[in-house]
Nucleic acid binder design. Structure first.
Lengths: 223, 223
DNA sequence: GCAATCGTGTAATGGTTATTACACCTTCGC
DNA sequence: GCGAAGGTGTAATAACCATTACACGATTGC
């Protein structure tokens, strides 16, 4: 936790409201959560909540983009070190899965999805700040490999999308059904990934020069 | 449309309620749709609605499983003719996409997903009646190819899941964000599919005997 | 310590909506 | 045509909840 010296009580209240709201939205969904219950959990008062966020929608926006800010950082990790595709992809896959399969992130996704019926702009903003950035970075990465001589079986764009689907699309079955059936084991992910690597033409060093990519992994838990 | 001679007015009312409710749920979502607006569109009265469905949840269940019944049929199309994997898979893919990317089906999925927060059993029932059946059929199909001599790069189970993701996971970005950004062009799907086929080891006739599968396509629009 | 600012607790407001009650109309067997 | 069962339309009930209003207590600069 990063602790910033807060200028006044109001900022602490703000944090408490956002944390409580996130927890309750996660448990009950947006529409079912009452502002009363949020105040009850966070402390403070309804008047303060309205002063800070304007209304319930404003609070949701604050909650969502508070979390999205964290996800933004993730896309910046795809940089710097040079590794071969078959080395790099599993590391990136593990990193992305850790982020994207996070229960809190899933719950927020679900809420944004629901609200998108009424407010498409809101949903687009959310996905621009999370998924789209990551995707762009991946496209760039595949493009680089291509320049380095890899003979890709499809465009970097198609490959980036498919790669994302291969590593996270089973998250959607969870997001959708709250199912606990499908096991997200590392072995299963890896099997899917190997199929992708082979299918993409990235399974062996090819062409004039060994394809490589600039990758850095800052998290200590992998590799 | 199948027209069955209805025994009394009540059954016509039932149909009208379900159709109106489906349309409104699709437009506005479940929680935002009022029973009043459903009666307004369908005709009839609130009293009849309650007699038929008990309450609002009962109506939703009727709407969802009325539609799910159609999807059930789809899984039965994977049968009978023998084709090679690289011939069969594109046909199956097109068939499944047509079903799964249907806007109505997407909207229902979105609603079920939202309600799964409160009622997991409901969501599970929905997915059992739709996705799970299809998946089982696919597993069986890959298993058959394996018996026929195909050297699969992963288990039939892993392949079935991945195949489904390859052909429909981009539907989720739509389902989630109501986005119109991603184009579901046949070319794009095909590119993804080719990667899958190559990665799965299904791109050339291998082994003792040409792998084949029993496939029938009843829809006239493809192939 | 004091007063002005800031935050709190409580309670009213107003609107929405699921659900129920009830008195009227329609249909259909006879 | 008649009457009973089946539908219909309207309006009442009751609860819930976002939002606002207001008077009281806490904090902080001085």
């Amino acid at each position: 936790m990063i602790t910033i010296t807060l200028c006044c009580r109001l900022d602490q209240r703000r944090r408490a409201f956002i944390d409580a709201a996130r927890a309750l939205f996660l448990e009950q969904g947006y529409e079912r959560t009452t502002l009363g219950s949020i105040v009850e959990r966070a402390g403070g008062s309804l008047a303060t909540l309205y002063k800070l966020f304007g209304n319930k929608d404003g609070l949701l926006e604050a909650v969502v983009f508070d979390r999205a800010a964290e996800s933004e950082k993730l896309s910046r990790r795809l940089a710097t070190t040079r590794r071969s595709p078959s080395e790099a992809l599993p590391i990136i896959a593990a990193d992305l899965r850790e982020q994207l399969l996070d229960p809190e992130f899933l719950a927020l996704t679900r809420i944004v999805m629901t609200r998108s019926i009424e407010d498409q702009a809101f949903a687009r903003k959310f996905f621009d700040r999370t998924a789209t950035g990551t995707r762009d970075d991946l496209v760039e990465m595949f493009t680089q490999w291509q320049k380095d001589g890899a003979e890709l079986t499809a465009s970097p764009c198609v490959l980036a999308d498919l790669f994302l689907d291969v590593i996270v699309s089973d998250m959607h079955s969870d997001a959708i059904s709250h199912s606990t059936k499908i096991v997200h084991s590392p072995e299963r992910t890896n099997a899917r990934l190997q199929i992708f690597i082979k299918g993409a033409g990235l399974d062996e060093p090819v062409g004039k020069q060994a394809p490589a990519c600039r990758i850095t992994k800052t998290s200590p838990d992998i590799g």
